[in-house]
Amino acid sequence: MLQRCGSILTRRFSASNLLLSEEQRHLKEMVYRFSQQHIAPIAYEIDKTDSCDYRSLWPKLGELGLLGVTAAHEYGGSGLGYLDHVIITEEISRGSGSIGLSYIAHSNLCINQLVLHANEQQKKKYLPGLCDGTKIGGLAMTETGAGSDVTSMVTRAEKVDGGFLLNGSKMWITNGPYGDYIIVYAKTDPIKGKRGISAFIVEKDFKGFNCAQKMNKLGMRGSGTGELTFDNVFVPEENLLGPLNEGVYILMKGLNFERLLLSAGPVGLMQAAYDVVLPYVGVRKQFGEKIGHFQLIQSKIADIYTALNASRIYLYTIAKSCDHGTSLNEDCASVFLFNAEQGTQMALQAIQVLGGYGYINECPLGRILRDAKLYEIGGGTSEIRRTIIAKALMIKHHKD
């Protein structure tokens, strides 16, 4: 059954497949099979219980080389690119949006930041466990009063003998409740504003580091989101990630890749919704006819298919640009803006097609809708993305 479905998938989306190499098409099919076998069957229970056994699931992903996608082989990674990374993210999210989100936090926000900015000693210490799935990673920047505006950050790291004392708290941190290694941003020179922020690698066993609470969210349930607190947490000097006071540079350099990877989540959710809708309209009957024969339903199916493929092709195109080092801030913000909003709208349309059945929790579409909405909020809201795009375009125009 999986072989047949995989073949259908390859043929049906030939337009987007033109952007993939043969190896990438095989990768997509392999992750699709894994996701449908190990992730999709538990998605309902994960959403219902708001919990997932990542300690069992992560090593399975690690065995397939899916965690350390951009990390070098010498550290246990796969040495692949961002297009490979979004392919994997898409197919995992197709099985479960919440697992897809935790995967992004681990593989991109943590591992890829270490790949880009960690020194040799840090890479050897932290990457192998993160890549094989025995350790779980995350990133902590957001605070109650500091989201898109990093200058409002109040968490501080004071220089002391041999390291730093970290004090403050972080809010809405994905993988926070169970993460082993968290990249934490804190002010090391508050007078300098955003130029006085540094990044640190914090281990869960550091004294004074705690998860104060786990958030009870509308969607992405099972992807643990927590409030992290730091009470005189001593962070050794060797755990400073990158140069002192250059945390904003590290953060901003990773933002394009973060937005790109987050753009893959909605595409996976849109495909999952399509997987439900198309079979349904071929069997559900009203007035003696399959509802797929009704023109209004056909119109919705056409719109869903078009939105899905436009989002996927846009995603793959920008990912290829990132692999070639030619991506622009406005491009990554734009694909994230487009895919996130398309994901929410497509989930709504899918529910409308299924009617009453689409509105009950036994149907996955409600979960898909709740999961999709997060992408219009997390990683910078749609409003912030529009601001980034507009400012970049206006600056470019006036320079020309």
Results as ranks from 00 to 15, higher is better:
226 G>W: 13
230 F>V: 12
230 F>C: 09
232 N>V: 04
236 P>V: 01
237 E>A: 13
237 E>D: 07
238 E>H: 15
238 E>K: 15
239 N>P: 09
240 L>S: 08
242 G>D: 06
247 G>T: 07
250 I>G: 03
257 F>E: 15
258 E>D: 13
261 L>D: 01
262 L>V: 07
262 L>S: 07
264 A>C: 03
265 G>S: 14
268 G>L: 07
270 M>T: 12
273 A>C: 14
277 V>N: 05
279 P>Q: 02
280 Y>D: 05
281 V>S: 02
281 V>A: 03
284 R>G: 00
287 F>I: 00
296 L>E: 11
297 I>D: 01
298 Q>G: 11
299 S>Q: 10
301 I>A: 04
302 A>D: 03
303 D>Y: 01
303 D>C: 04
305 Y>L: 04
306 T>R: 06
306 T>G: 00
310 A>K: 03
313 I>C: 02
319 A>V: 03
320 K>T: 05
322 C>I: 12
323 D>P: 01
324 H>W: 11
326 T>V: 13
328 L>W: 08
330 E>H: 08
331 D>R: 00
333 A>M: 05
335 V>A: 04
336 F>M: 15
339 N>Y: 10
344 T>H: 06
347 A>C: 10
348 L>K: 11
349 Q>L: 07
350 A>W: 12
352 Q>T: 06
352 Q>W: 07
356 G>E: 15
356 G>Y: 14
358 G>Y: 09
359 Y>V: 13
